[in-house]
Write a protein that binds this DNA or RNA. Structure first.
Lengths: 210, 210
DNA sequence: TCCTCTATACTGCATCTTGCAGGAAGTATA
DNA sequence: TATACTTCCTGCAAGATGCAGTATAGAGGA
C-alpha cells in the first residue's frame, strides 16, 4: 500500500522540483536551507525520497560515474502536479520549541547561575544559525545565487530569519538586565517592576520598545 | 524496566512541583501555559505522569470526591531532586517549525493568491496565541496571579512571546509590501530590490528597521 | 606499499511522539 | 425517559528521531 505524503515529503519534493539530487545531496541541502523553516532529521530526509518514488512522485536511477554508485532522484510530472496541489492546502500552525524558555519559566528550581547558563546556551544556539544565514547572504553577493531566478524568495525568507534571530538576541539582553535586578530566582513575587511589566503586556506593548 | 525521562517528563514534573494535579488538569494546564515554549500533544501529556510514577518521581492516588474517580498526581522528594538536576543540564537548541515559510520559499510553485493565503494563515495562527497571552496578562492584572511568588518568571516569559508575535506580525506586513511589487511568484530573479535586500542581510541589518 | 583517517553514502532498530478513534461516566435539555 | 454534550481518559497505527553500524573512496603520512 502506498504511504501518505507528509509535509516533509512535500518539502523534499519541492527541492526535487529545482533539480535532480542524490539522497546524500538532498539531506545536506535540506539541512542547510530547509532547517530554518522545517527542521528534520537526517534519517527522515534519507527516507523521504524513497517514499516519493513509491508514490510515483519521483523516479530513481543509480549513477556509477567513476566513483561509487549513488541513487539519483528526479521529480515526475505527477510529482509536479502533487506539489501545486499541496500549495493550495491549509498550512499547519507554527510550532516553537524552546527549552531555554521552559527553564526560565521554572527557573525557581535552580540557581541564578543555572538561569544565566540557559540564556547563554540559547544565545549560542541562536547565534550559530544567525551567523550562518548572514554568511549565506554574503556568499550570494560574491558568488551569486545557485538559482538566480529564485533570489526574491530566498531573500524574503532570510529576512524572516534575521528578524527572528535579532529579536531573540534583543530579548536575551533585556532578560539579563531584568534578572540582574532579582535577588534570587524564586519568591520575588509582585513588585513595582512586575506590575509595570504586566500592565504593559496586558496592553499588548512590548517592554523592549521603550 | 524504568523508562527514561525526556524533556517533556521534566516539563510535567515542573508543573507537579507547583501543586498536585489530576491528569486532566495537567493536560489542560500544559496546553495553556507550556505550549508557548514546549508544545506537546494531549496524548503525550496524559502519558507523562504515569511515567513519572514509574520513575518514582511522583505518586498517584485515586480521588472519589462525590463525582467520578480521578487520578491525582503528586511530586515526590526524589522527583524534586531530579528536577533540580535537570536544571543543570544543557538545554536543547530551539526548533522553529513554520510551514507557511516553507510555502514562501517554494512559492514559485503556486499563484500569488496561494502565497497571500499562506501569509494570512500564518497571521491567524500567530494572532490566536498572541491574543491569548495578552488576555492572560490582563487576567493577572484584575484577578491576580495563580502563583503570586512566580509572577516575575511568567511575566519575563510572556515578554518573550509578545516580542516574537509582534516581530512575526511586523514581518508579515513587510512581506506583503514586498510581494505586492512582484509581477508573479516566479522568475523574478535579481532586481535592484533583491540586490539591496541581500546587501542589507549580508551586513546583518534587518530591512524592517529602516 | 601499507596504514590510518576522514568524508561519502547510506540502513536498521529502538524509542519517542502524534493523531485519531473510541468508550464510559456524569450533566444538562427536551 | 431519551439524547446529546462534556469530562476524562486509553489503545493503536503511523510518523519522526537518535544512534549505532556498514562499506567504499581518497588523502596523507611511515
Amino acid at each position: 500500500m502506498a504511504p501518505k505524503p507528509t509535509t516533509s515529503s512535500y518539502a523534499v519534493l519541492a527541492l526535487l522540483n529545482l533539480k535532480p539530487w542524490t539522497g546524500y545531496e538532498l539531506t545536506n541541502q535540506a539541512q542547510r536551507s530547509l532547517r530554518y523553516a522545517w527542521p528534520k532529521s537526517e534519517r527522515l530526509l534519507y527516507s523521504e525520497p524513497k517514499k516519493l518514488v513509491e508514490l510515483g512522485y519521483a523516479t530513481t536511477y543509480v549513477e556509477e560515474s567513476g566513483k561509487r554508485s549513488r541513487n539519483v532522484y528526479e521529480i515526475t510530472e505527477e510529482g509536479r502536479l502533487a506539489l501545486t496541489q499541496w500549495t493550495r492546502t491549509r498550512t499547519e500552525p507554527p510550532r516553537l520549541e524552546i527549552e531555554a524558555l521552559l527553564r526560565l519559566l521554572f527557573a525557581d528550581n535552580g540557581t541564578m547561575e543555572d538561569l544565566h547558563r540557559a540564556l547563554e546556551e540559547l544565545e549560542a544556539d541562536v547565534g550559530e544559525p544567525h551567523q550562518a544565514i548572514v554568511e549565506l547572504m554574503a556568499s550570494y553577493l560574491d558568488a551569486g545565487h545557485p538559482f538566480p531566478e529564485r533570489t526574491h524568495l530566498s531573500v524574503l525568507f532570510a529576512t524572516f530569519q534575521i528578524e527572528m534571530f535579532k529579536s531573540i538576541e534583543r530579548w536575551i539582553n533585556f532578560a539579563r538586565d531584568e534578572i540582574d535586578q532579582w535577588p534570587s530566582t524564586s519568591h520575588l513575587g509582585i513588585t513595582e517592576r512586575t506590575g509595570e511589566l504586566t500592565r504593559l503586556l496586558a496592553n499588548d506593548r512590548s517592554p523592549l520598545d521603550t
